[in-house]
């Protein structure tokens, strides 16, 4: 995850100071923290970060009958562990179709955002047309628009054209609100591609489409990957858009899980296992493409 620290940990220790030097509060705090204390503090922090997630995982591996006791008691009865909740989940049609919906919504949205965003990013970076810089500024402005602003009119629009409670309704909405970030990120990255490469291709008589496919896309791959992963996670984890436009026929997994909350307490087995199912894919994506994910975060901190 990190190469940054290698440079910093090797720096020389601060010079020794005269013993009688006046010690400020801050100085003492730093002194306190420079020994083994950071280790202990960060260890506790890491525990605080891990325990809640571990709790959910353990809860999902326990039988329903054990739900009135804390998940931590499970370690005293290892024989309790069971995959029963997961086998039941695979038979749960609501959850399985919601999972399928999530996959369709997420994959389609990601592909659309990446393709359309790359095209626009290229145009903004390397093509000349009237008002280019102004239009791009508007796109930057749109980055911060809360999607709540569009919920009411788009619901009305979907009703009008018969798209309400369909998968395309959810996908198209995600596309609209994914594009400002996509165009912003890709335009800036594409603009950094050396001009010589494009000029050379143009001298060779390559068309714009050919330059886009043969020069821009390969060279822009790191940014495209960042965007793709970001968009994937964002769409996969969405609740609000799916809730508003998905209805019962196109509801994603997040909405299906939330609906289980109506009976919270009696269905911990369903909620915990389904939640874990919804976490696995983002976690795998995160583990595999961490580098690009972090780059996306670094580049897109305005969203």
């Amino acid at each position: 995850m990190s190469t940054t620290n290698e440079t910093t940990t090797e720096r020389p220790a601060p010079p020794a100071e005269p013993e009688f030097q006046r010690e400020g509060v801050g100085r003492r705090i730093v002194g306190f923290f420079s020994g083994g204390i950071p280790q202990i503090v960060l260890l506790l922090v890491a525990l605080f970060w891990l325990i809640p997630g571990v709790g959910l995982l353990v809860a999902s591996l326990r039988p329903e009958s054990a739900n009135n006791t804390g998940w931590w008691t499970a370690f005293a009865h290892p024989d309790q562990f069971t995959t029963h909740n997961y086998t039941q989940l695979l038979k749960n049609n609501t959850m399985i179709s919601a999972f399928t919906n999530t996959v369709i919504i997420t994959v389609s949205t990601t592909i659309l955002v990446v393709v359309i965003g790359s095209m626009a990013g290229y145009a903004f970076a390397w093509m000349e047309f009237p008002g280019r810089d102004w239009i791009f500024l508007i796109v930057v402005g749109l980055l911060a628009v809360p999607l709540q602003v569009a919920l009411i009119p788009i619901a009305k629009f979907y009703n009008l054209v018969g798209l309400f409670h369909t998968l395309p309704a959810v996908i198209l909405f995600h596309l609209g609100f994914g594009l400002p970030f996509a165009v912003f990120l890709l335009r800036n990255f594409f603009a950094g591609i050396p001009r010589d490469l494009l000029e050379a291709a143009r001298m060779d008589g390559a068309t714009e489409v050919r330059i886009f496919i043969r020069v821009i896309l390969p060279l822009g791959l790191p940014a495209i990957a960042s965007l793709g992963i970001f968009q994937f996670l964002w769409t996969w984890n969405d609740l609000l858009v799916g809730l508003t436009f998905g209805g019962s026929s196109a509801r994603p997994l997040t909405v299906a899980i939330k609906e289980q909350f109506a009976a919270f307490g009696n269905n911990i087995d369903v909620i915990s296992s389904a939640s874990f199912l919804s976490m696995i894919v983002p976690l795998v994506v995160f583990f595999s493409f961490q580098r690009y994910f972090v780059q996306g975060v670094l580049a897109g901190s305005v969203k």
Binding site: G53, L233, N237, S275, V285
Partner: peptide
């Protein structure tokens, strides 16, 4: 990691 798993989870 929690950033990856999203708000619902």
């Amino acid at each position: 990691m929690p950033m990856a798993i999203g708000f619902l989870a």
